[in-house]
């Protein structure tokens, strides 16, 4: 993205150029949307491929009128719970696995068993235990996000610079405090990377669970609009969830940069 990337402009003349750059940069998207608009009704029936403008208007309407806000909040609630649980359990598990050998011996084998498992295969298991509803979705998000967080925390804590530990010891940090005062702070950047990797996974897991077993939430709403034949609304909800995912990932990156100013 380097060559078309423009910097924040300060002066008027560069400001104008900046606007031009933005237009040039996003023009391809406009072209694709234009083609879609053309295709809709001409090449494909409008019910099957609704025009993008209609979809956008409905997307805005669904949010503004509050029709979808309930589902959005439910989904958000599930994803936050699932992700928080995964972070809580995953970081503790990963870091202790790296520093305490018996813990690693105990959990290592499960990690290597779960690692190559495509995580959506866990949805039926969650349904089996918890039926359909929030519990299932939270469990699926939790399980799907757990591994990247554990692995990154493990790697982070495992590779803490030994010189840091030694110099802390030299300056009088006790073994008991070492963990809290040196190992964890030193591992934080990589732990956060693991969490960032987990955010998009969380969205995939959430939508999977909601498509298969839910009677509320964004995924459920997409499916039910589809079954009812209200295709504009179905696409509109997808636009909304994509936006939410985009904001989620971008937002997390921003937080990451803010938190890790010292790296």
């Amino acid at each position: 993205m380097s060559y078309l990337h423009s910097e924040k402009a300060g002066i008027v003349s560069t400001g104008v150029r900046h606007v031009g750059d933005v237009v040039v940069r996003w023009l391809p998207l406009l072209i694709v949307t234009g083609l879609w608009e053309l295709a809709s009704g001409w090449v494909v029936v409008e019910t099957v491929l609704p025009p993008p403008l209609d979809v956008l208007i409905i997307a805005v309407d669904l949010v503004v009128s509050g029709q979808i806000v309930g589902d959005l909040l439910v989904s958000l609630w599930r994803i936050i719970w699932g992700l928080s649980l995964a972070i809580g359990v995953g970081v503790v598990l990963g870091v202790t696995m790296a520093r305490v050998d018996p813990i690693e011996d105990f959990f290592g084998v499960f990690m290597s068993l779960i690692y190559p498992l495509p995580k959506t295969a866990l949805v039926p298991l969650a349904v089996l235990w918890l039926g359909s509803g929030s519990g299932t979705a939270i469990l699926v998000v939790f399980l799907a996000c757990l591994l990247p967080i554990v692995l990154n925390s493990y790697n982070a804590a495992e590779s803490v610079d030994q010189n840091l530990v030694w110099s802390a010891k030299m300056m009088g940090t006790s073994d008991r405090d070492m963990f809290r005062r040196v190992v964890v702070p030193a591992a934080i950047p990589e732990i956060i990377t693991g969490i960032r990797q987990a955010v998009p996974i969380a969205f995939v897991a959430l939508v999977s669970a909601e498509l298969i077993a839910a009677n509320r939430g964004i995924g459920y709403r997409i499916l039910s609009y589809g079954q009812l034949g209200i295709y504009e609304s179905m696409l509109a909800v997808i636009v909304v969830i994509s936006l939410a995912a985009y904001v989620g990932v971008r937002g997390f990156e921003r937080i990451e940069r803010r938190v890790l100013v010292w790296t």
Binding site: S208, G219, I241, A245
Partner: peptide, 20 residues
């Protein structure tokens, strides 16, 4: 120039939601 913005927008779409 053509594909970069498409990737920026297309990549975060949770692909599973396109099943319906």
């Amino acid at each position: 120039w053509f594909f970069d913005p498409i990737i920026t927008i297309g990549y975060p779409v949770p692909i599973i939601s396109l099943i319906p």
